[in-house]
Design a protein around this nucleic acid. Sequence first.
DNA 1: CACAATTCAATTGTGCACAACTTATACACG
DNA 2: CGTGTATAAGTTGTGCACAATTGAATTGTG
Lengths: 144, 144
Amino acid sequence: MTDAPRLDRQVCFALYSASRAATALYRPLLDELGLTYPQYLVMLVLWEDEPRGVKELGGELGLDSGTLSPLLKRLESLGLVERRRSGEDERRVAIHLTPAGSALSSKAGGIPQRLAEAAGLSAEELDQLHSTLERLTSALHQSR
Amino acid sequence: MTDAPRLDRQVCFALYSASRAATALYRPLLDELGLTYPQYLVMLVLWEDEPRGVKELGGELGLDSGTLSPLLKRLESLGLVERRRSGEDERRVAIHLTPAGSALSSKAGGIPQRLAEAAGLSAEELDQLHSTLERLTSALHQSR
DNA sequence: CACAATTCAATTGTGCACAACTTATACACG
DNA sequence: CGTGTATAAGTTGTGCACAATTGAATTGTG
């Protein structure tokens, strides 16, 4: 008999579980904003700087147009975002915040705090986790 | 201007990114087995002990019947699994491995190794990451 | 300038994740 | 015994992820 891999040993499963648990915790908070977690991520990027092209958003988040195009349409129909074909380059679609979209950032302010409180980890542990995850992600991307 | 939360500070985004990067690395390996990552997780559980009820599988993986029912049907149509109504309790559906399903475990043996190699982290770091993630997940589940 | 190669966004199709609901069976309690 | 309640699995509907393809606009090169 081969030593079949065991579920409880897998870092990958631990990542998958932790990620779903974290977004599950965000869900009720984001419900108040009317956003899903991926939509919230897009808004985070736009709150930092806008307008942005679809490709640019995808670069920040690691998502492609197949995911973003319909998501952005939903944000547009929520009135948070506007999609405008760029004049200079007609291939590009620039994503602009609407006033409502900009205004939402103030309501989103307290959200990350709550995860930190629920995490049951110290600030140092969270910091270290964060930096380990970033190194892990970039290593995984490089070995493709 | 409000201090909007920043993407690059969020542990949640780091988890989400790392998780997707890890499953992306698994994908070509799992393609050889004809499995998706969640299907592979279900097989892992069954390789440890079978048969299992849908509820039981869901308990191990944190998934509900809405996710598992169609997934298990796909595993059945791949010939890896059999769904049998339990005689004692007609509500239950016991998931059995077929011979092909059992045999697949030997082909799956080397897979977790590869992630470890690609991770760019030392064994200790991986261990520590694993234990931090498990503590995090359980803390997040408790604060619901 | 012509036209091949590239780039950007959108579309199509498959398969999770998850909420809400449905159906069927088992169990508990008066 | 009968009826209400709980439980198991499945279904429906929405919204990601992601591969593969499409169509339109731009860029590079002869």
